[in-house]
Design a protein around this nucleic acid. Sequence first.
DNA 1: TATGAATGAGAATTCATTCAT
DNA 2: GATGAATGAATTCTCATTCAT
Lengths: 214, 214, 214, 214
Amino acid sequence: MEKIDFSGFDIPEKEKKILEAAINVFSEKGFSAATTNEIAKNAGVAEGTIFRYFKTKKDILRGILIHTLNMFSEKIVIANVEKLLLESEDKDIRVILKEIVYDRIKLLESIFPMARIIITEAMYHEDLREAIYKNIIEKALEIFKLFHKKMVDKGVIRKDIGPEVILRCVMGNIMMLIAQRMLYRDKLDIPDLDTEIDKMIDVIVLGISEQRRE
Amino acid sequence: MEKIDFSGFDIPEKEKKILEAAINVFSEKGFSAATTNEIAKNAGVAEGTIFRYFKTKKDILRGILIHTLNMFSEKIVIANVEKLLLESEDKDIRVILKEIVYDRIKLLESIFPMARIIITEAMYHEDLREAIYKNIIEKALEIFKLFHKKMVDKGVIRKDIGPEVILRCVMGNIMMLIAQRMLYRDKLDIPDLDTEIDKMIDVIVLGISEQRRE
Amino acid sequence: MEKIDFSGFDIPEKEKKILEAAINVFSEKGFSAATTNEIAKNAGVAEGTIFRYFKTKKDILRGILIHTLNMFSEKIVIANVEKLLLESEDKDIRVILKEIVYDRIKLLESIFPMARIIITEAMYHEDLREAIYKNIIEKALEIFKLFHKKMVDKGVIRKDIGPEVILRCVMGNIMMLIAQRMLYRDKLDIPDLDTEIDKMIDVIVLGISEQRRE
Amino acid sequence: MEKIDFSGFDIPEKEKKILEAAINVFSEKGFSAATTNEIAKNAGVAEGTIFRYFKTKKDILRGILIHTLNMFSEKIVIANVEKLLLESEDKDIRVILKEIVYDRIKLLESIFPMARIIITEAMYHEDLREAIYKNIIEKALEIFKLFHKKMVDKGVIRKDIGPEVILRCVMGNIMMLIAQRMLYRDKLDIPDLDTEIDKMIDVIVLGISEQRRE
DNA sequence: TATGAATGAGAATTCATTCAT
DNA sequence: GATGAATGAATTCTCATTCAT
């Protein structure tokens, strides 16, 4: 499992190692089934050391969440989307969407261990869902609405389909594709991600385009 | 939390109560965080009684899985999809898909507690993913391929997009919609499911249709 | 495992079956490790039925002990020894002892399952040792003393070795031989029990005889 | 209950205390009837601490077994027997045997709690019997055969009685004597162990000697 | 009388957390 | 700061015993 890069966040070396180890272990067994002992071994520190940096086991999880959500909120991450969506003035919507989808899939897959933990825990904790909403969904929707409006105004996207429906469709496709690639690599292999995204985008763009409708 | 209906499956009364309680508790806390003590209390039986029906705590989970997969595999459930997809000779593809999507959303939401448990655990257990694949994904793909071929032959669906891409799109939309309704009811309210599905289908059908393409 | 014969003791059929089953199960796993459930299955009765005949699990053990000790105390059993030891007026001591040893080995091996349970439990329970002492050891010693005196009086056995020493020697030999045959059949095989006893008796008789000493 | 001396074996202090406590508790109640809770209290540690040193309760038993067998296998223990049996060139067989028997009785009585546990459990577990055979019986038999051969060659012991018969006789006497002293101290008191062993040896030596036979 | 489902006290075991070194 | 041994509360699971049928 590839290591998550915490560089750029000002964290003590040991804490970083513990977080990395925790992400790996939580991601493999789930939060509850993971033991602090295993995290300690994985991090190469003593079990007691963990509790110097994190008051409780739950605090480690909280640390992971904070760092993951921070990553998403990071200027670069958001900026990238904003730039792709809003500043690609003359590009074809197909190209814009493809770039965005490709970018998000790569991002999500690079943090898959963290994402898996967060999604799982979000299933059971309202407050976590709240945090995800505030930090990711709300922002994504905000930006996407701008993009949508722009596209509708340009007559590229049909105006009778709200941005929520489209975003849900795009995100649904992304999530399923990632699930397929991460969890069913052996059964539902995707030889060429690029082509696969092309087709996905093709369907969506066609479905939301203005020009081809009666 | 609504009770799952086990009627029709020949299960002892007590086992039914334990399964129902386990579904509730697992669904609220996740498998590992749930305790057999809590399940027992929830089921109104002694803790020991649980272990007369299920050898281990994990066996309860297995029981839930089996019953859930059974529900999906049930003739009626499968038959319903098959009928909708394959026997609706003259219906518009839009109508067919809408019926199917509506039907699946209702089904999945009715078993949401079970589904939540299984999806969560599937994140961490290869064998469970295997079971889901064999019992649900494979069968769904099989039926959908027939439908797809028929529609392509009839010139309704474009032939350059494989059934996998379309099914993934439909399922992604369904999953996101359910997540939205079940987990973000307060934040992302959907006042009219019917209209929402209409829009979703509209985009998809337009995206996969043959007739409107150059 | 051969069944112990309780016929002759006036016991209800079911109780007999339970006792037989308990002997088998206790003898295979030890008292504490055996479960009433297994005993019930072995006896072909319901678990509840056991507790109609025996108040507690410990009571089953007590039942076994009582019957086993009763067997030893039974006139026939004692009488046999008495007859062999005391009424064989003219027989060679070698022949007498051999008959006795052979007889006891056969007896003990026939009730080996019961004996194993009793010996094991006697290791840990003073009261059981007390019962064994009163019912078996004391009586055996009593009879043996008579035999010893007779033999000493006849000038057959040396008078400087007390009957306790000799009895202990005989019993030690018997116990070791049985342990060997019952527990180490594969490793320390005794092809011909008869010859083996002959040798054992030969050593003992020679050791305790009067005639050959200076 | 006297404490077993583990000094000389390199074991952590706590593990030593747990083993000592376990020996006491197992020896008083038997393995199955003993509880880890009681062992913990006896050892003056928390129950959880036990499981830092021994993975399972059964592992404690294994630990006891290993240490007991180690004691027997210890060079000093074996060497002592070998020296007594084989290097006492000119000593009377009576003296040699007495020393050996006395030595073994003292050894066995010093580890009586451990021996009691092991013998009891060996009644029910083939693998344990196997371990006893390999570590004790086989070695004892080996050494004794050498001694026997030497004595036969010297014309001291009759050649028509195999070493197995003699060893069984000696061991039977030892076992019975120990049982008597350890389990029936009050009923079958032996005021003078020395004299008692003298008599036992006298009988055996007379029984196996060459010189006095016709 | 016989049954066997249900019980719940008690057992082994786990593991986050503490704390002396 | 770092360690890891020790803790003990909590958890899963067992099983003798009860009792309604």
